[in-house]
Design a protein around this nucleic acid. Structure first.
Lengths: 195, 195
DNA sequence: GCCGACTTGACTGAACTCATTCAGTGGCAT
DNA sequence: ATGCCACTGAATGAGTTCAGTCAAGTCGGC
């Protein structure tokens, strides 16, 4: 077999890309590490030079999707001006780039834990954005939130949990309403703010 | 080898108990399915008559811990009277029977996703309790929460996420304060309730 | 009521698959 | 020329499957 050496970062990325493609095509469980190395045209052992385990590759894939999503949301907020409240609802109501990520989820099939992990990671992707929005809101008086970081974490995880459970809330609309209400309250954006 | 048949439910429970013991003793990864069957004195294949996979056994273990915790919290609430608000803080501030569960977490070592899953499952253990407390609070006027189920889910997942991240909030006390504030707000338990 | 054929599914254990490891190889930079 | 380390590919071993076995219960005939 011909031996082709590539720059480390490029090879690592190649593994992640190939793995993501195969996971989406055939599912995570049905994708063998051998499939990844075969499609890349390298020895199976090489994969383990870059990643501790098959699961570790999955984590790298997830992290890449998270990074892409972070960047997309950042860009979205950068290009849309508006009041803090408007920007907040922009953040919560749009799901830019959930496409890739939405493709990965079904490929995880029976791996419940990993699916929840995904949702949490994706939720936390917007953590820094939400924190700075909260701080901006506190500054301009539209919000009243003493612990921006903790509250942001709380809200994003709560949101993730609620999005996950498809069986619980009968109607999507109810869920959406509930989310809106609880977020407004948590961030102290009540129409009648305290003195 | 002698062949000993047992009632299905008993055998299933025996596998779960043996697995939990071994997971805690040696860690999940270091526990082999062969260890479980060996300690039980049965063939390895039998385990797969009851569970799809090793991971599936872990899920069963987690679910059992969740059920125990549910029961314990239920008992706790049953034996302590008080106002709705008092009962709420009882629910959030005590962690009855996190012992077992706390033993399992370290045994999961590097399985990040499963650890998060555990935390979420354990948080959801008190879902029905929280829902009925919220409904009680709505009835007696101490709370004002239009979507009890959704809000309860949101709060519990938010809480779980916040508990998980040890690195984020510098001080436990800050975290506790933040949790208290955000829960009070989410449930509509503001000191100055609307008309 | 008792006995033997029959059915069922809990159970066995060896084969198999696939993730992971490892001792060695060769391209590349110095 | 030499050392480093990306890379090979076969060996290892743990999880999973599967073809077959046996205990226990069921049913029909005596």
């Amino acid at each position: 077999m011909p031996r082709i050496t590539k720059p480390v970062e490029e090879r690592r990325q190649e593994i992640i890309d190939t793995a993501l493609a195969l996971f989406v095509e055939n599912g995570f469980d049905k994708t063998q590490v051998a499939d990844i190395s075969k499609r890349m045209g390298v020895a199976q052992g090489l994969v383990y030079h870059y990643f501790k385990s098959k699961t570790d590759i999955l984590y790298a894939v997830i992290d890449q999707l998270r990074a892409e999503q972070s960047a997309n949301m950042q860009r979205l907020l950068d290009t849309h001006a508006g009041t803090t409240l408007e920007r907040l609802s922009l953040l919560f109501e749009t799901r830019p780039d959930f496409e890739h990520y939405g493709q990965l989820i079904p490929s995880l099939q029976s791996n419940r834990a990993v699916i929840e992990y995904c949702v949490q990671i994706m939720s936390e992707a917007s953590l820094p954005l939400l924190v700075s929005l909260i701080e901006a809101g506190n500054a301009d008086g539209s919000l009243n939130c003493e612990y921006p970081l903790e509250t942001a974490l709380f809200v994003l995880h709560g949101l993730g949990g609620l999005v996950m459970t498809s069986d619980v809330a009968a109607h999507e609309e109810t869920k959406r309403q509930a989310i809106k209400t609880v977020i407004i309250r948590a961030l102290g954006a009540d129409p009648a703010p305290p003195t």
